[in-house]
Computed example of a mutant assay.
Amino acid sequence: MSNRTSLGPILAATDFSAPARHAAERAARLAQETGAALTLMHVLPGGALQELRQWLGSGHAMEQQLRDDADRQLQAAIDALQAGRPLSIRAVQATGVPPQEMGREAEAQDAGLLVVGARGAGFLRRLVLGSTAERLLRRTTRPVLVVRQTPHEPYRRVLVALDFSPWSAHAVALARQVAPQARLVLFNAYQVPFESKLHYAGVDAATIDHYRQQARADAIQRVGSLATASGLQPGDWEPCIVEGDASQRIVEFEQEKDCDLVVLGKHGRSATEDLLLGSVSKHVLSEGSTDVLVSTTREA
């Protein structure tokens, strides 16, 4: 593929759980594939440390032991990722509220991608559907990759969900950056506007079917135009135009099309405000089985 821009630095978060190790492995693979710089970050929860100080007093040896243990685990994780890879990985250890510290570090290094596990210990366990995710995403307009699967190979087939809003072109570009060798499945779920109300109002079935065919034809044309505008060649992508509710159909077709990554997105000045609260994103993150890349971008 041509005209691909650099992904930029990758920031992966770890709490040393198995899902976090999978996320770190995916981040390392992406760094190797794209040439992006990689940072592996661990955040000691400030609230828990504060409780420890209340029980044992400030400066207790236990606190330093926790920090030393975390440092050793972080270095061991980096050593494992570097085994057999000519890859430089920067370690960052922080203390505080994990989403805040991740957001702060992402801003400091101008990260192009945040990578986290779908489940884990501590705050990562609630990342997808809990308040931590909402706080994290409200603190960044940077893309977030939620890793579900153990990575064995580069992404091969990526479903990019399109609604033709201004973020759609950015989502395609991001998919190409994260999965440079993958075939893109450009997906759109169309519906006849107010179909149930049309039936209720007595509009005949033939007219409604005409609207349905028109909506499908429009979606096909717009997907093709977006692919052309994005610089995709015919062998780089395929259309997937289906009727129905987007959230349900994405989950169905990520499996039917044998995809290993789904790209969702939102644009706007407040790009993350309802990102994981929206029905489509929330349903795909909770019900899907593949990795999910949440694409965000600021308005120009």
Rank of each mutant, 00 (worst) to 15 (best):
D163M: 04
A175R: 07
L56H: 09
Q93F: 07
H42L: 03
V242P: 08
S286A: 15
G268H: 02
G47F: 10
Y155N: 12
R26S: 10
P86Q: 10
R119H: 14
P19H: 08
F164H: 04
C240R: 09
G96K: 03
R139Q: 15
V251N: 01
V146A: 03
L159Q: 00
W55S: 09
R139C: 11
S225R: 15
A27I: 05
G202P: 11
D163I: 00
P151E: 05
A205L: 13
F123K: 08
A175I: 00
F16S: 03
E105K: 11
A133W: 06
V292N: 06
A77Q: 01
A133F: 06
R26W: 04
L159S: 03
H60D: 11
D15C: 01
E134P: 05
A121F: 10
E105N: 09
S286Y: 03
Q214G: 12
G120D: 07
R138N: 10
Y155F: 15
G268T: 00
G59Q: 00
P193L: 06
S289E: 12
L285A: 03
S165D: 00
N3C: 07
H42N: 06
I220Y: 04
A70V: 13
L261V: 02
L30M: 07
Q109I: 15
T150H: 13
L174P: 09
V262F: 02
H199T: 08
Y200L: 14
V144Q: 06
Q100K: 11
H199S: 07
L87V: 01
A271G: 02
G84E: 00
Q214A: 12
S281C: 14
E153S: 14
L162Q: 06
R148Q: 09
R216S: 04
E243H: 01
F164V: 01
P98Y: 02
P99L: 03
S270H: 14
G231I: 13
L137M: 05
